[in-house]
Structure formats: C-alpha cells, structure tokens
Amino acid sequence: MNYTLHEQEFTQQVADLIQQTACILPEDIERALVSARALEASDNVAYSVLDTILKNVDVARKQQQPLCQDTGLPVFYVHYPCGISTRIITRCIQDAVVQATADGFLRPNAVNPLTNKNSGNNLGIMIPCFHFMEWDKPEIQVACMLKGGGSENMSIQYSLPDAKLSAGRDLNGVAVCVIDAVIKAQGNGCAPGIIGVGIGGDRVTGMQSAKKQLFRLLEDENEYPELDKLEKSLLAQLNKLEIGPMGLGGKTTVLGVKIGMVHRIPASYFVSVAYMCWACRREVMSYKL
C-alpha cells in the first residue's frame, strides 16, 4: 500500500495528544482516587491529600494546565502500517514535542549529563523516546506516556534468587520484590502509585514489559489467571502497609498492580518494577491514513 501522511495535520494531532495527556488524568485513575478518598475519615491527613489531588485534577482539566509540572521523559509507542516511514513519524512527533514545550504543556526536561545544559525544547539524545511496531491497520496509533522523575527514580530491578530478601525464582519471589520496592519508595514515588511489573526478559526488555503494563486500565484482568490472582493479592497486601497517599499514612498505598511477563534465559530471572505516580498520564490517538 502507498500511504500519504499529511505531516502538518499529523503533527498538530500529536501536539493535541500531548496537551491532553499532560492536562487530563485518565478516568479510571480518577475513579480509583475518588474511591480511595471515600475510605478515609474526612479529618485525617490521607483524606486531605486525596482531596487536594482530586481538586487539582479538576482544575487542571478545566484550565487546561499540566496537572503535574514534571512531565517526565516523553515516551511514544507507535503502531504504523507497512509503507510509512518511521523517520517521518519521528520528525513529526519531535516537532509536536517542541510545540507542546513552547506552549507550556511540557516542561523542558532534556538535560545533557556532561554539561548539565537543558536543551530547552525537550529534544536530546534518546529524548523523546520511541517504540515502533508495524501492524496491518491503515492507521497510525500513537500512545503517549508522561511519567514523572520522582516515580521513575523509585523504579527498580531485582535479579532472582535474592538471598537478602529470601526471594526465589517463583511467583512468591516476585511478590517479595514488589513489596520491597513499595516499602523502599514510601511516599517518594507520589503514592498512591500504580505498580507495573515485568517478569523475565533481560534488563532492558524486562523493564519495557513492566512499563507497558502501565497502559492497562486499572479494572482490567490479566490474560494469565495465575498473574491475575497475584495482581489482586498484591494489591490487597500493599494497601495493608499503611504508607498512604504521599507517604503520610492511610488506607491506600497503591491503586493497582499490573504484571506482565516475557521469556527469560536459563541464567536470568529478572523482576522489573516500574513505579508510576498517581498522576499516571497516558493517552492514545489514532490517525487514519
């Protein structure tokens, strides 16, 4: 098939996608936060924190301002049909990122680690970040994720067996790692978080799998029954830790646990934990060709 990509139109739609991602919290996350607030007595700190969060979500949406100032390292997952140039898509999305930065929807976040200079427009080596996948549909799907640095810093990878944690190479071992990660994070990842887990892979594909889980809706079910069971039991266990919203105590420490898996090699058994803040900004758009 020969497709014509109207670059200007596509770029504008990606810029709109970025604005929407930065300003509007997904509905499933907002619903979970409302439920979490309902569990707390109205005079305690956890209620007050969740109430502030929900007021902020509302005002950010109405005023079309970024709900969190840390718009992270913009990541794009792109599906495209055979015959479309990924180099052209890359350039269009980069242009959209520059525009969204100039318009104040993204914070300029690309810093050269050698000079500590901020590029000012969110372009840098491997920033923004792209994942391309070819598919059969005559459309380009762009999924955008904005994940703040506070939560990214709390993400962690374990190599099992781990003697210190008494974690072996099975789902019990996986559970021990996830609980350890959430205790280590306390409030620093902007709890209540969403915990993406990747079992297996190498150090790159394991973490990729963990991060991809963060696109799943909170209410969905895992395709593997044993992982679905683990997700639900971990959600209950983690919320008994009483770390609470922003680590100030309370009944809700995480909003969801989502576990994926990729094949491993005999020598390695990685458990990758991607901690996502409550401000789980993810949005998807489709561009018909």
Partner: peptide
C-alpha cells in the same frame, strides 16, 4: 506539599 498537585 502534595506531589503532582501542580495547578493548585
């Protein structure tokens, strides 16, 4: 302060 409550 509440993390993420940037517009408030």
């Amino acid at each position: 302060a509440v993390g993420g409550a940037a517009v408030i």
